[in-house]
Design a protein around this nucleic acid. Structure first.
Length: 644
RNA sequence: GCCGUUGUAGCUCAGUGGUAGAGCACUUCCUUGGUAAGGAAGAGGUCGUGAGUUCAAUUCUCAUCAACGGCUCCA
């Protein structure tokens, strides 16, 4: 007998060799029908595998992330079986579960998959699923495994086998499909009730662009049709929040072929948001002791040679223009310009820390395939600043920057983010990273120290640093599920030297300052793109392009509406009058669709009483108020930057 | 940059080898209406661009540009 410990702490005895599935069955048939895999002593494995010793057991179902992964992993195998039956001779690479479903990479030779094929594959998968074929696990020696795939002529699986040793190689077979796989899998294909193959894409073998491109098919499956329907509905909802769609509907930005890809044109509504964000940045930077500067959009080649950017990032910069025998580049970053401002006048320790801030315009030649709405563009406006400080000042400065991030996150209600401490890879010194092994270690320790001492949750990622030093990136997720670096906070020990930046210390010696690059609000492009999705276009009052729309019941009250709007404007409230010859219902509908926070309906009653009937977006009629009261109330909402 | 898909009116989308249609938006008129679409009329497109096949191309072929979904990349 063996002791099985359940998640609630209960311990029960079972016969040795019993499986998680048996155990589930002993609890209830219903549970057994839901078990997808099992976590045995923390190890996720097939529910059908015999348990041979005392163990803690968690039965994994659709409600567990690991259960879902098992389900989707098995679905990938099911899809592979369908592909193989329709396209014999296909060779497979890997087919893992992902956040929302699974994919399988395959080499179809000269054949191409079409959308129609996806329909056929779905149909085939449904057929195969109904056969309730078990996923059978088999341990196999490396020799036999190699033979199996050599006979098949499958160079991809042979490549995978190279990295594996005897004792860790298993095959899984369901129906007519056998795959090299470490598992685990669901008990049988019958669990898969609803199937949707979502798209066909190319993917480089092993993720290396030098390698052959394989065909990747993405799909998602569910234990019931209802869940698939819900998922598809969710996708529809997400589409409505896409910043590209909202940006168009709300008149925030536009792109134009004649202007160029990745070059956003900010429309009047978008510009208001930009100006509000800059106002916020200026306020907090003023409070933080920053000084504002302005620098040109171009500079001579030499500046970027000094900074070291050209050798590292030439491909990402617009090609130079040559004038009078001198090459000029559009700036891809503001730092070299700021360094020159630092260098313009001799500095002493009394001038430090020096904090130079600018909403700088940068141009980056991102690869065409990378462009994505406002999230990835070629012209960007960065909430940039550089802090020049001594090593002793570093901790306080870095912490202050961190605090600024947190302050912003609070204002915008950003609670899902991850701070990534990006470190260098010592094997790439002198190539991807400046060759200063000691300084790397030192500064990485400094940054880690700040994060630990301030109790900031973070993850460390190797080989992601800037070429001049370690950095902290703030990762966020767009509603479409893409991950972005929203903001960045970097340490730079290299450029100070290359620009020969110096300050005179207490004891009259020359020292190079450390530089902190920081951009808590990232770029206008990415940040507003994010905010559009974050708020689903329903901007808080302080950011809303139109804050109040005055809606006269009919033309008779148009003059009164204009008077109201004038009073609002006098109080710096962005107000407009809907002077169209339309019924009030229509005016309300259109204003709701434009997501204007406040609507003031004015007619006979309001005019005689000198009042307004207030309607809040999404909430409806909230009653009448005196104009003065209303102005006072929302002025506070604006000033405090309250988000609902 | 690579693989795939798409490109028709401001927007959303039909459609066809014989030089194009709907709804919304827009303009004008009627209507002056109290909390999510009042009515009528009108205007608007060399069907992404270029070339080829054809008596004839928006439709077929090729190229090109752009967008979209991925891959790679992201100071």
């Amino acid at each position: 007998m063996i002791n099985i410990t359940f998640p609630d702490g209960a311990v029960r005895q079972f016969e040795k060799g019993t499986s998680a599935l048996d155990i589930a069955r002993s609890i209830s048939e219903g549970l057994a029908r839901k078990v997808l895999s099992a976590s045995v002593n923390g190890q996720v494995q097939d529910a059908a595998r015999p348990i041979l010793e005392d163990a803690t057991l968690k039965l994994l179902t659709w409600n567990d992330t690991d259960g879902k992964s098992t389900f989707w992993h098995s679905s990938a195998h099911l899809m592979a079986e369908a592909v193989e039956s329709i396209f014999p001779g296909v060779k497979f690479w890997v087919g893992p579960p992902v956040e929302n479903g699974f994919y399988y990479d395959m080499d179809l030779g000269d054949r191409k998959l079409t959308e129609e094929d996806l329909g056929k594959l779905e149909k085939k998968m449904n057929e195969l699923a109904k056969q309730n074929n078990a996923y059978l696990r088999k341990e196999i020696s490396k020799k036999d495994a190699v033979k199996y795939f050599s006979d098949k002529g499958d160079e991809y699986k042979l490549d995978l086998l190279q990295g594996l040793n005897d004792g860790e190689i298993t095959f899984y077979t369901q129906g007519n499909f056998t795959d090299l796989c470490r598992g685990p899998h669901i008990p049988n294909t019958g669990f898969i009730k609803a199937i949707k193959l979502t798209n066909i894409a190319g993917a480089y073998w092993k993720g290396d662009e030098k390698n052959k491109m394989l065909t990747r098919v993405y799909g998602v499956t569910f234990p019931s049709q209802k869940e698939l329907d819900e998922y598809l509905h969710l996708l529809e909802e997400a589409k409505k929040r896409d910043h590209r769609k909202l940006g168009k509907e709300l008149g925030i930005f536009t792109m134009d072929d004649d202007v160029g890809p990745g070059l956003a044109l900010w429309m009047p509504n978008g510009t208001i948001i930009i100006e509000e964000l800059e106002k916020l940045a200026k306020e907090s930077e003023l409070a933080g002791g920053y000084k504002r500067v302005v620098t040109p959009h171009i500079a001579k080649e030499n500046l970027y040679l000094t900074s070291g950017h050209l050798p590292y990032y030439k491909d990402s910069m617009y090609p130079p223009m040559e004038l009078e025998g001198v090459k000029y580049y559009l700036k891809a970053m503001n730092c070299p310009h700021h360094h020159k401002i630092f260098a313009a006048e001799p500095k002493s320790y009394k001038d430090l820390p020096l904090r130079l801030a600018e909403y700088g315009t940068c141009y980056r030649y991102e690869q065409s395939g990378e462009l994505f709405g406002l999230m990835r563009v070629r012209c960007l406006h960065m909430n940039d600043a550089h802090i020049y400080c001594s090593k002793e000042q570093f901790y306080e400065e870095f912490k202050a920057v961190n605090d600024m991030y947190l302050k912003y996150f609070k204002i915008f209600g950003i609670d899902k983010y991850v701070m990534r401490l990006s470190l260098h890879d010592p094997t790439k010194l002198g190539k991807k990273y400046v060759n200063e092994p000691e300084l790397w270690k030192e500064t990485e320790a400094l940054v880690r120290d700040v994060l630990i001492k301030t109790n900031t949750p973070y993850v460390e990622v190797p080989d992601e640093a800037a070429f001049y030093g370690p950095k902290i990136d703030v990762q966020i997720w767009s509603i479409i599920g893409r991950e972005f670096t929203l903001a960045t906070n970097q340490v730079d020990f290299a450029q100070g030297r290359s620009f020969k930046l110096e300050f005179t210390t207490h004891d009259n010696k020359a020292e190079t300052p450390l530089i902190i690059h920081r951009a808590p609000l990232g770029t206008h492009e990415r940040f507003i793109g994010f905010l559009l999705e974050h708020y689903a276009g329903k901007f808080p009052l302080w950011l809303a392009p139109v804050q109040v729309k005055v809606l006269p019941i009919s033309d008779k009250f148009l003059d009164y509406a204009k008077t109201v709007s004038q009073q609002l404007k006098k109080a710096d409230i962005r107000a407009e009058v809907d002077d169209r010859n339309e019924k009030i219902g229509k005016k309300i509908r259109d204003t709701e669709l434009m997501k204007v926070p406040y609507m003031l309906v004015v007619g006979e009653k309001e005019m005689t009483e000198n009042k307004v009937a207030v309607r809040r977006h999404g909430k409806g009629d909230t009653g009448t108020e005196n104009i003065g009261e209303f102005v006072n109330r929302i002025s506070i909402e604006i000033k405090e930057r309250i988000s609902e």
